[in-house]
Design a binder for these strands. Structure first.
Lengths: 246, 246
DNA sequence: GCTTTCACTTGATCTCAGTCAAGGTTTCGT
DNA sequence: ACGAAACCTTGACTGAGATCAAGTGAAAGC
């Protein structure tokens, strides 16, 4: 079972140790965090928390992917966040969840009870400072995404999403730059549609089109090869040097 | 001249004293801030800073409205933030601006040189804490807006924008709830289009339609009366109780 | 092994918002 | 007072993506 593999793991061996909210913590602070942390596992498709529910914990994604989703009364949904390993869930000082949080893949989270975490945050500037950094990064990502949602065509939206996923995988496995990039899509067509503000039919059609033109290669439905990252980036409509800014 | 009216104003008399990044500061901290602050004024339409430029200050909007805008190579633009009085501009720890910042109306900003402000932030948890709060609020607003951009119809987008502006004005002039709401639009049709991911023609048509149906009343191009806020909120497609959550 | 279900693809058609074009108002400079 | 420049409105047409519908393929349950 997933859970058993991780429970009681020492923070110093944690795969997200240097990127999560605890990144700047020293040994003492880490010890305090260890005292209030616990792991939770979710299967792909499970809901971590429903919008409006009481939220008595905050936490970090350790492995897998979670999504934040908003739903309108008539059922239209929009994904408003894609949480990757080390990303933070929840907001100190708020009681109820503003969005549905769902496990998009199998998911492991490192959770802290909210009250003690808030206390700890007040006492340890390292945590508050890191959380501010991470929140500012997320705000930038959200604004980047607003351009995608508001102004890009369906084709550009798909290319943008594939670029983001490809870039993330590349940064996790830091590799030589040239050569094809290979990864598995962690999202269903429907989840992609919810993220991109499209229908799943349009997502499917645009992926087929990119495949037909050789910009991507598909093996099965989810296994993607990008022979030339630059061509994909061109389709995304970003500044041509976008990939090298980071 | 606008500038002269405000220069050397004491922070304790500042109109945004209790809502800006300095909200939680005590008298001592405020004094330190006063030492590094200066005011800058901009006319409507002026650019405060260009994307990519060196940014050697951060600051708060004191009066007027500023906008954050992203532009694609081919000229498509998307507004990604609307900064109202008390909102914060800039990011401690970053050198260059990621977006164009423009004065949408005449604008006064309270600026701090970046380096001293960063120093001050490290020393005074009150400022860092308030900045975290404000950033989390902005992240929520950005995610709210992602739903608007991704899933709402043109009509719902217009109604959403009008609701937001109306609600802001209502909270600045806290008034009895019932009765019509009156305000001036601080944005041109084009700026609305950039914010909503529409063309200015569509904005104009939808505003005309809402007017024809009596959901809004217009005097001139910018002066708006909302006879029944609930009807407008219905058109925005939000949860029916949305307006009372705050 | 067979059915059911889930995830996806593809086609035909429709519709909402974009595009192109013309004209109206208001404001501003001279 | 006049002309120019913003800013806005309206109309006719177009097209990208939504909708409706049918079908494929692979995995899961019995």
């Amino acid at each position: 079972m997933l859970k058993a593999q991780i429970d009681h793991t020492n923070c110093s061996e944690c795969p997200i140790r240097h990127r999560a909210v605890c990144a700047h913590c020293d040994a003492n602070e880490l010890e305090e965090l260890e005292g209030i942390k616990y792991y939770r596992s979710f299967e792909a498709g499970q809901t971590v928390i429903w919008s409006g529910d009481q939220m008595n914990f905050v936490g970090s994604v350790v492995s897998g992917i979670a999504s934040l989703t908003q739903t309108m009364e008539d059922g239209r949904t929009q994904m408003v966040g894609l949480l990757l390993p080390s990303d933070f869930v929840g907001r100190p000082g708020r009681d109820s969840a503003p969005y549905d949080v769902q496990a998009t893949t199998d998911l492991v989270m490192c959770c802290f009870r909210k009250k003690p975490f808030e206390q700890l945050m007040n006492d340890t500037p390292h945590i508050a400072h890191r959380l501010l950094q991470m929140t500012l990064d997320e705000l930038d990502a959200a604004r980047e995404w607003m351009l995608v949602l508001g102004r890009k065509t369906a084709r550009e939206k798909i290319a943008s999403l594939l670029s983001i996923i490809a870039r993330r995988d590349a940064s996790i496995v830091p590799k030589a730059k040239p050569g094809p990039i290979v990864f598995d899509l962690p999202l269903t067509r429907e989840a992609m549609a919810d993220y991109l503000g499209l229908t799943l039919e349009t997502v499917s059609r645009q992926i087929s089109a990119l495949k037909k033109e050789g910009i991507i290669e598909l093996e099965g439905k989810r296994h993607v090869t990008i022979p030339d990252m630059r061509r994909l980036m061109d389709e995304a409509g970003d500044d041509s040097d976008g990939g090298f800014l980071i």
